[in-house]
Design a protein around this nucleic acid. Structure first.
Lengths: 210, 210
DNA sequence: GTCTATAGTTAGATAGAC
DNA sequence: GTCTATCTAACTATAGAC
């Protein structure tokens, strides 16, 4: 019994420390990229000695990959509900909304992902060639089926997906530019609703969806 | 005369070396961001001793700011020709084309800019608050005048600008994702034409522009 | 104007005491 | 399982010979 109690406690500490480290790492990697991030800064933010970070994560790359994979998991959970039998208008509007709200809620994740892609996806090539490829092909086929059914204009589904992705993503990555432009310190929930409305209007009408 | 000749030669070397350093710096900063970039790597790529880089540019930050400012100058030259009396359809189509072709031609500049914004624009705050603010307000007013003249749907000009900017920019920043998805090593001129066509179709029709 | 040599700092990682 | 102390390597930057 003594042993069990001890193991439980130890497991708890491990989970808590790992969580603290991962949260700190998310901030540091979002702010400085992989190469620019410092394990010292991460340890300081997590309020742990440097050596402990290396105890839980073998090295910088392993920590970074863990952060990246957590983001992908979150992503897969959030954006996997578009089917051919859906009404295009509702489906695209729902998708735009989900994506904008994700940008609002998880700006750090969006930034880390963008950073990884901009810098050539060196730690992420495998994902791009497998999971991501499958994901985007699935979406492509759904949109193509809508085109074939005459439910929308004949538009290359890939470019439509890129358009939705980039325009929604923008409000996470370029938050600073957007808020400076709109003359605000931070965007409000109302601002994000306006984003959803503008984007939905242009994209749905622009694709000839009734 | 001897002195003149010497000064000329000296000035030439300076210009040539600065150019080599700036080109190398563009690659390094695009690939690793400000913090991740290494002055050693830049010197190696420029085929100059490390100390020479420090001779021409006081420190890393000054070199980075020079690269950034060159990009902004190029930008201002390329995208400043939209006027209220223009036909919205032609103007927007021309702008989308110019922006996509800029992404094709200057992917490094696009990446460095995006990287700077993602990481909070710490070296770039001043530009965002002044030049950029003026630039985007000018564009805002032109688009608003089109709305007021009934030439297009009532859409918040800022969100339209962000949409055009993000969707065109995407093909520079996410080149790796795009080419992986389309199953190509590099995008061809034809691919970029298809991008212009898809984006123009959706955005112009989506804004209710005839 | 150029470049070698090196100072001075900070990074990632680990050994070993507790 | 934790953390101090320390190692090695890489970095930015500069002094000083040429």
């Amino acid at each position: 019994m003594k042993k069990n109690t001890r193991n439980y406690k130890v497991g708890q500490t491990r989970l808590e420390n790992q969580k603290k480290i991962l949260e700190a790492a998310e901030v540091e990697f979002a702010n400085h990229g992989f190469k620019g991030a410092s394990m010292s800064n991460i340890a300081d933010m997590a309020e742990l000695p440097r050596a402990n970070v290396h105890y839980y994560f073998k090295n910088k790359q392993e920590l970074y990959l863990t952060v990246l994979m957590d983001i992908v998991t979150l992503w897969n959970d959030a954006f996997n509900q578009i089917k051919p039998e859906d009404d295009p208008k509702d489906a695209i509007q729902a998708y735009i909304r989900a994506k904008v709200m994700y940008s609002k809620k998880n700006p750090l994740a969006s930034k880390i992902f963008a950073n990884e892609i901009i810098h050539g996806a060196v730690h992420f090539r495998q994902y791009l060639g497998t999971e991501y490829r499958e994901w985007i092909r699935g979406k492509h086929d759904v949109i193509q089926s809508w085109v074939d059914q005459g439910k929308m204009d004949s538009i290359d589904p890939f470019h439509l997906i890129f358009l939705i992705w980039s325009s929604t993503q923008y409000y996470a990555e370029h938050a600073i530019e957007v808020s400076t432009t709109l003359g605000k310190k931070n965007l409000t929930a109302k601002d994000f609703e306006a984003v959803v409305d503008s984007l939905s209007h242009i994209i749905i009408k622009g694709c000839g969806i009734k």
